[in-house]
Amino acid sequence: MKLINKSHVAKRMPVRLAVNTICKGLFFLATLVGLIVLAILFYRIFTQGIGHLNGDFLQNFASRKPEEAGIKAALIGSVWLMAVVAPVSLMLGVGTAIYLEEYARKNWITTFIKVNISNLAGVPSIVFGLLGLTVFVRALALDRSVLAAGLTMSLLVLSVIIVAAQEAIRAVPRDLREASFGMGATKWQTIRKVVLPAAIPGILTGGILALSRAIGETAPLVVVGIPLFIAFLPQTVLDTFTVLPMQIYNWTSRPQEEFQQVAAAGIIVLLILLIVMNSIAVLIRNKFQKRY
């Protein structure tokens, strides 16, 4: 009894192989879409903005005249924002991660916290802006300050940092902890002197990636009410300020053609900042990556 009609299979084979090759080509083309878009985006922004990018652009304040417009207030403002977001979000994020990985018992409270964190990650950033507007700007009367915006942003990136820190802490092998306990160290001593040092590269990498998200976010700050046009620098965390993405948004939404070039120059500054931060993250990851 012949189970397989070989001649039939042989007849169909070339078509099946051809379809396989064609589809492989299509899948590859789809993969190229991402690369091509990225190339066009960088090329467009670079050619539009490079003419405007010079020392004056970095040192001038925003102006109604496109040729005099600069990015000083926004650039310094972004640094101020990071000065609030980095310590607050890292402290809360790493603390939460240590609690969940090292101390938390398996009960409904822990499960609730974990489910809550994963849902928080899916809340649109603009909703965090509404939270910041109500709680920090109005209820705590922080007004449109660096602190109000920084706290809002910290809550926004908190879930990213928690997840990254949890992964880093989980990757520290049990042996290290047990060796430390075996030497008579207490739980907190073990965490502080053994687990955290081993997990710090992973935590820093995740932290920097989260901060680079915070530095590019616009929507929550618009809702909080950070001004789009400002010509002074903040002196304390209670002063008002503006940041790079807000300044870019302001320039982009102006009708004059010239301001689009100014916006492109601002985007170049923002992208350079992001590239520097991400490179540091990659460097840390590669330099301190230990395999246990």
């Binding site: 590019g216 616009t218 948004y249």
Partner: peptide, 10 residues
């Protein structure tokens, strides 16, 4: 990782 405002400009 590109900020959304950059996509908006694009």
């Amino acid at each position: 990782g590109i900020p959304t405002i950059v996509y908006g400009f694009f």
